[in-house]
């Protein structure tokens, strides 16, 4: 048998095969192989581009969902090609999807919110935040929920949907934070002198920032006092310590200089009576 004979035999063999029946299977296998390669490629791409934005566990879950999702979609695409009727499957899948959708509405909401939080990153682990009137440190950001440790040391789990849809105040996002006091003095006291005393306290305190400089001024002539507003910037990490320390120092130093912080008072005048003491102190 020479080469020409072998060639003829091969042609004869393939000629006997019904190519119309074989081709869909070949196409199906090709699509399946291609979908695996595509899923792997997309997984690698996602791993590289999202590794800084997601923690390791969450990224692992996301990659697996993407990988198997693409393969499942490919299988659904292949089934009608190889002659299997998927209309029943689709109807059943659709009904199941609706039931599951209703049942897992909040779960899916939390999951999607978790993914969006990881991409947007308004908060980080360790951030000091206020979410839905809960203040604390972020301990963990999971796919379904965010864990806070509040200032009392309590463990608080907030569903991600709530985190995403509520206002988030990230207290530690910026390096500097302003503190504010209103200090009331008597009408008989010298407001300029009080401002100078407070300015000196601000100047001497290490954590009251030199720049932006403190702002101290008479803000309001109140019912019972002249209100001096004190605004000063501190490093965010030192804000609370500085805030709790300064107010008492201001009060003590003002009193040392004879400036009093008045109590609320009311002068009552009787109709036919003339008071000799008609000055508020």
């Amino acid at each position: 048998m020479n080469i020409g004979d072998i060639f003829e035999e091969v042609i004869k063999f393939f000629g006997n095969i019904e190519t119309d029946r074989i081709f869909p299977y070949i196409l199906g296998i090709a699509i399946f192989v291609f979908s695996i390669l595509l899923a792997k490629g997309i997984s690698v791409f996602l791993r590289r581009s999202l590794k800084d934005k997601f923690d390791k566990d969450s990224l692992g879950v996301l990659l697996k969902v993407t990988y198997y999702g693409i393969i499942v979609m490919a299988v659904i695409l292949i089934l009608p090609i190889i002659g299997m009727d998927t209309s029943g499957l689709l109807v059943a899948g659709g009904i199941t999807g609706i039931i599951l959708g209703f049942a897992s509405q909040s779960t899916v909401g939390n999951l999607i919110s978790g993914l969006l939080l990881m991409v947007e990153r308004p908060i980080k682990i360790g951030s000091k935040v206020e979410i839905d009137e809960v203040r604390g440190f972020v301990e963990d950001i999971g796919l379904m929920s965010t864990i806070l440790r509040n200032f009392d040391g309590l463990y608080i789990r907030i569903p991600n949907e709530k985190v995403f849809t509520n206002n988030i105040i990230n207290i530690s996002a910026n390096v500097a934070r302003r503190l504010e006091y209103t200090v009331g003095i008597r009408y008989s006291d010298d407001a300029n002198k009080a401002i100078k005393i407070i300015a000196k306290i601000m100047e001497d305190h290490p954590f009251v920032l030199k720049n932006p400089s403190p702002d101290i001024f008479v803000d309001e002539l109140g019912d019972n006092s002249v209100d001096i507003l004190v605004r000063a910037w501190t490093p965010e990490t030192q804000w609370f310590g500085t805030r709790k320390e300064l107010l008492w120092v201001i009060k003590s130093n003002l009193e040392k200089e004879g400036i009093q912080i008045p109590f609320p008072q009311r002068v009552v005048w009787y109709g036919n009576e003339e008071s000799e003491n008609n000055e508020l102190n």
Partner: peptide, 18 residues
């Protein structure tokens, strides 16, 4: 003397010893 200051703005700046 111990004093700190902000270089830049509160959002993108840095806290510095002054």
């Amino acid at each position: 003397m111990q004093k700190f200051t902000l270089y830049g703005d509160p959002g993108s700046g840095i806290i510095c010893k002054y």
